[in-house]
Design a protein around this nucleic acid. Sequence first.
RNA 1: UGGGGUGUAGCCAAGCGGCAAGGCAGCGGACUUUGGAUCCGCGACCGAUGGUUCGAAUCCAUCCACCCCAGCCA
Length: 565
Amino acid sequence: MVCDGESRSLNFIEEIITNDLENGVVDSIITRFPPEPNGYLHIGHAKSICLNFGLAIQFDGKCNLRFDDTNPTKEETEYVESIMNDVKWLGFEWANLCYASDYFDQFYKWAIDLINAGKAYVDDQSAEDIRQNRGTLTKPGEDSPFRNRSIEENIDLFKRMTEGEFEEGSRVLRAKIDMSSSNINMRDPVIYRILKRSHHRTGDKWCVYPMYDFAHGYEDAIEGITHSICTLEFQDHRPLYDWFIENVDVPHVPRQYEFARLNLTFTIMSKRKLLELVTSGIVSGWDDPRMPTICGFRRRGYTPESIRRFCKEIGVAKSDSMVEVELLHYCLREELNRTAQRGMAVLRPLKVVLENWPDGFVDELDAENNPEDENSGNRKVRIGKEIYIEREDFMEEPSKKFFRLAPGTEVRLKYAYIIKCKEAIKDENGEVVELRCTVDMDSRGGNAPDGRRIKGTLHWAWTGDAVEAKINLYGNLFTLKNMNDMEEGKDYQDYLDPESLVVIEDALVEPILANAKPMDKFQFLRHGYFCVDAESTPEKPVFNRTVSLKDSWGKISAGNRRGSR
RNA sequence: UGGGGUGUAGCCAAGCGGCAAGGCAGCGGACUUUGGAUCCGCGACCGAUGGUUCGAAUCCAUCCACCCCAGCCA
């Protein structure tokens, strides 16, 4: 297990910070997690959160939660609330709660400074003209005809822009850098656009809003961020980031570093597409257990610990990566195996009558709550003449490696007795509907009196006290391992897995499970980890499968047709 | 074809000139009242080609592949 105190090699950002600290470049570090409140956080954000907050903890620094709310057309308070909630749930505390919008006045002053320094100008060109004159990857751009206006005129125009005198799209403020730069970001980027929208925090105070490149470095400068960590696609923006910082009098000079964002197999991470899944009703909401959102994982039964562990295991580097979901599954199982209470649930029941069981007799046996935890104690399970076993635990014509129940074979009922199959009763369609078995009454507890080895052990439910339950079996939302490899002409929705949710209405669970509270987590013996759904009641309990147990029999029997769940 | 990045086992990822960490997945075995867990064992000559060096995944050169950039999104 990787513990916090365990020594391991540093990732490149930890190395940079270590050097900066040792060389006195900085005395202590301040990082930030800067989401735009235009959607719910997903597992990719979790990587960034663990990185930024983790660094602050590791180096005894601070980390701010900052909402990068510079575009009122897409941002809402619903999102800021969910983001705060998710960050807290992951187990992190921010040093300061910040909003880019709190700095709008300062941004405005710096914009004026740039104009006064002859480094910004108001451009009257249309968006289309600006695009035309920007050039292409191989062709340099051309100067705007408005590039050399006087400082006075620029100041006047910009002020009138902010006062709402002009229509959206009619003018922008641009940085005056270099229209022939090989880095397109440096070709006089737009720094303010007219947006007559009301902002979730500043209301109608502003008619102009700053662009990311202009605002972000200043946000960092204001907060004293020492290491501004973002994803790879911003590498090309770093020269711009530095340019804005250098050309104005800032209180602090932050530095930007970039790392590779997380990609997960069988998953999409695009906020736009996730929003579509929600609005189209393909999933039940941002917190649908199949969504890669933090709240989706939470409802699915994931723990904050397991997600943090996952983020630690995947590492931080600069090469584009596609992490297999199996690693996430592993991190969850690793924790839940140690902590989850065990219980028996029969998902697809097959009735079994124990012919020689004494009529009316009910036995009560001890069952371990968690074999991995000595302190977890035991519980009582009851059994009588008629029980249910898992339908797939019986095979009329067993294959050679099948060591569960079959005509004439013996199997152990977990915690209880050894039984032997006498006969399979079928209905008119030839489907097995009931098993007649004999029980070795001397094998109470599951041990054969003569010491004979019983290889198969089955979970079961007693007809006398089993409770009917609804069970949601969740799997991957998509069928394609690498969603970047979609076929030409196909859409991500063409890859939705129709079996990403399979509902079982009439499973049978032991009584203790029926009385659990929402979000309680269990291991259903031989099945996997499940959590109690929010809608669960003692009369009709509902469980969500978080992840299945590793299933080596599944691989043998079916050639692993569907991958892990 | 301009610029910026990245290329180490199926997937992540260490390595910073001295003879390739670790994890996941996979495979084999032991053990097992969860075909779970646990335990043991198994895999690379480092994108390619040249060069420098006693010695290179690590330095140099050339080439190749992949990713990002032409929003008044972030």
